[in-house]
Design a protein around this nucleic acid. Structure first.
Lengths: 202, 202
DNA sequence: GCAACGGGTTAACGAGCGTTAACCGGGAGG
DNA sequence: CCTCCCGGTTAACGCTCGTTAACCCGTTGC
């Protein structure tokens, strides 16, 4: 994972290495994008937030859109890789789904900015970056759907996908939500998601 | 409802009346804002989408921000008024909560653009409009919380609010979700939300 | 010691934005 | 018939943005 042969300009090799500075910029930019939206944040804003100014960012990224792309790719890749790693060591289907829920809740609680950006600005990307991100997202949904379907034979394929996305919406409500103790919030979100995904009582 | 004494310029009285043109502009703008974000849509875009061009919009609204404000105020007001109306005729606490869930699901399925805009761009507003919208949103959350707490004595006040917002996240997942039959989607969302909000099995 | 380079600076550009100004046609009221 | 106003138009202003250019300094390799 983590590369997927994503060479954006291909002629600026150093713009791909992972340096602390690059990571700092990505983290800061994600926060700003989450707070004010992609178009609501200027390069000057991002630069100022990391202590450098405006055009210096082009020493690290090819463009503003490139910054957003790296944010989203990193986020979607992290989620997908984590989920696949989980599934390889799952005892039962029930355990697999519960593990996915818990992991996603952890991610959402730890990276609220990435969650927000991922769900609202993936359309601001250029076609190629958008395709990459979309691929990861769809794959992630598929992992969940595959985990859910054996437990819910009452759901058709598309219904199962919709149910999964509804569960994402629930878990991703974290950034918009009241501030309570992290552990309490984690417990609340996971039990709610698990109940939402379980079969109705009938 | 629907006014809350919101006179924005106070010197342009006709900018408050509800004309078909104004409503058309608001609807179109909501779609555009939902698709590309507030800052990603220009006045020219909005004008073009309703068949007039750019500056003509100032014959109907004071500013771009005013358009967004009217969108959000209308949406939050509609939700709140509907919820209060429901509660006045609810038989049991259970029935009240179920009615709220069903109504919210209806709204989300009918107005996906308003849902998206409401949850992502209320911070692009000026202080006074933001306060208005926030007030409606908080009141709406309170209505839900008041309906939920008698059913879930195990939840503290802030936990109940977080649970309500998690349920919103679930129900609001509609716009991001796969396209399935509206009735099926409604059934899926309501049962999931009701299960998510019900007490854990223990 | 010096060339190369990584990472920063400020200045400047061109485009696009929100908004205002000035103008105009048509229908209603007296 | 003249007047007003409602809802359009196009032109223009000023500002901000993303991006490029030109320059600079400290560190490193030869």
């Amino acid at each position: 994972m983590v590369d997927t042969t994503g060479h954006p300009p291909a002629d600026l090799p150093r713009l791909l290495h992972v340096t602390p500075r690059r990571q700092q910029i990505l983290d800061t930019a994600a926060d700003l994008f989450a707070a004010r939206g992609f178009h609501g944040v200027s390069m000057g804003d991002i630069g100022a937030a990391v202590g450098i100014s405006g055009p210096a960012l082009y020493k690290h990224f090819a463009s503003k859109e490139d910054i957003l792309g790296q944010c989203l790719l990193h986020a979607s890749d992290q989620l997908l890789a984590g989920a696949r790693e989980l599934l390889s060591g799952a005892a039962s289907p029930q355990a697999a789904l519960h593990a996915l829920v818990a992991r996603h809740a952890d991610f959402a609680l730890d990276n609220p900015a990435l969650i927000v950006v991922q769900e609202r600005e993936w359309d601001a990307l250029g076609t190629e970056a958008r395709a990459q991100v979309r691929k990861h997202q769809l794959a992630y949904i598929d992992v969940w759907t595959d985990a859910l379907r054996p437990l819910r034979p009452d759901l058709g394929a598309t219904e199962a996908r919709a149910a999964v996305q509804a569960a994402f919406g629930l878990l991703n409500s974290t950034p918009h939500s009241a501030r309570i103790n992290r552990a309490t919030m984690h417990a609340l979100l996971t039990t709610m998601a698990n109940q939402a995904l379980s079969a109705p009582a009938r």
